[in-house]
Design a protein around this nucleic acid. Structure first.
Lengths: 207, 207
DNA sequence: TAGATTGTTAATCGATTAACAATC
DNA sequence: TAGATTGTTAATCGATTAACAATC
């Protein structure tokens, strides 16, 4: 169990990671919390507090070594090993996410695509042929699946998630319009696009 | 300007909306904050506090009328009028989002798709033919665009956003890996898929 | 050494939860 | 009226910011 590091802190880590990656591309070797705070529009204090949840990565009088900090955050975020990903529901969104995961320069590897529509069987997306959902149990015997992506209609999401969880899948990236209720120890990350769109809509009103 | 209602509250409103919609489908007419709190796994106190940011929608001794509350939240979220949407960058993700926006039963209407690749010109996605980015200025003269969706490579996002903002587009749904820096009064809602995936990855470690 | 900047403690601010009087 | 449940104030909890001693 990760010690009690707050969700708010975790949400910010990928953003630090992105900025540090860009600094590396630009050949910047060291940076102070103050310089970074100006770039990122957050307080220097918050940056130091956030990082010190995980350890002292800087040096007084110097600041932070960009490459070192980048690698440390990558390690914290679990980006030092490859995660096998299988996707369920190869509709429009599933199709896009399958390609997305394959193209990103992140250590996530799409290894299987599953759907219930027989017409889709064998069609290749990012070089991976779509399989039938009922073939998953067999597939799972010889393939490690670290993350299941759920790009399914909302009514299908929960039953499929339960089926996968029973087999041993422990992490879900959920795009369906439901709150997955999962036993403890199973990790769920939701991307609710419609909720994002509604927040945008809210912010457009009354200004 | 919306009075100072916190982001945390706004983030929860679409979720209330979803649950209330399901209650309506199930024929439920009234609900107390306590019943809703059990369904949604939040405190009843939070529900009442959240709603009372916008007004007293309940009645002592009775609870909340589901249909009434649903409509009120819809109104708060700006879902009582149709928002015209144009999308920029018709790659995999753009393609999926274009379909998504069109299929959802929400008052967002996809009216234009734009790309820079001449090979895509005229191809139809959700019945809408892809146009060239340079045609947008002309298009904009006769079409109101409320929201621009940016499903572009990160280096293209900022220049395109500026160009659109200069024409008068005031809301952006940004999927590109950049923080758009926009003048005040322009609304940006970010969906950073890679950051979501990294959070999932983090939560998988050390358990 | 002097200057810079972290790591960390303390102060402030904001959000969540608890409690209860108001009222349907 | 009695019971139920809201709306709202007060208490608690957590997150952010400020301050500064430690130290490179």
């Amino acid at each position: 169990m990760n010690k009690g590091i707050s969700k708010a802190v975790i949400r910010r880590m990928p953003r630090y990671y992105r900025y540090l990656g860009e600094l590396i591309e630009n050949g910047v070797e060291r940076i102070s919390s103050n310089e970074l705070s100006e770039m990122m529009q957050v307080t220097a204090s918050q940056i130091r507090q956030d990082l010190n949840n995980f350890g002292g990565f800087g040096q007084q009088g110097y600041g932070y070594n960009v490459k070192f900090l980048y690698d440390e955050i990558g390690r914290i975020l679990g980006l030092t090993e490859i995660h096998n990903v299988a996707l369920f529901g190869v509709g429009n969104l599933g199709h896009a996410i399958a390609n997305y995961v394959s193209f990103e320069k992140l250590p996530f590897k799409m290894i299987g695509l599953f759907d219930v529509d027989p017409k889709k069987k064998g069609i290749r997306v990012s070089e991976i042929p779509i399989m039938m959902l009922d073939e998953f149990e067999e597939f799972y015997k010889t393939n490690r699946v670290d993350i299941a992506v759920l790009t399914l209609p909302k009514d299908a999401a929960m039953p499929v998630a339960e089926r996968l969880a029973n087999l041993g899948v422990r992490a879900f990236w959920n795009f369906a319009h439901v709150d997955l209720v999962m036993p403890k120890g199973i990790v769920v990350e939701n991307v609710h696009l419609s909720e994002s769109l509604m927040q945008l809509s809210y912010n457009m009103t009354g200004r």
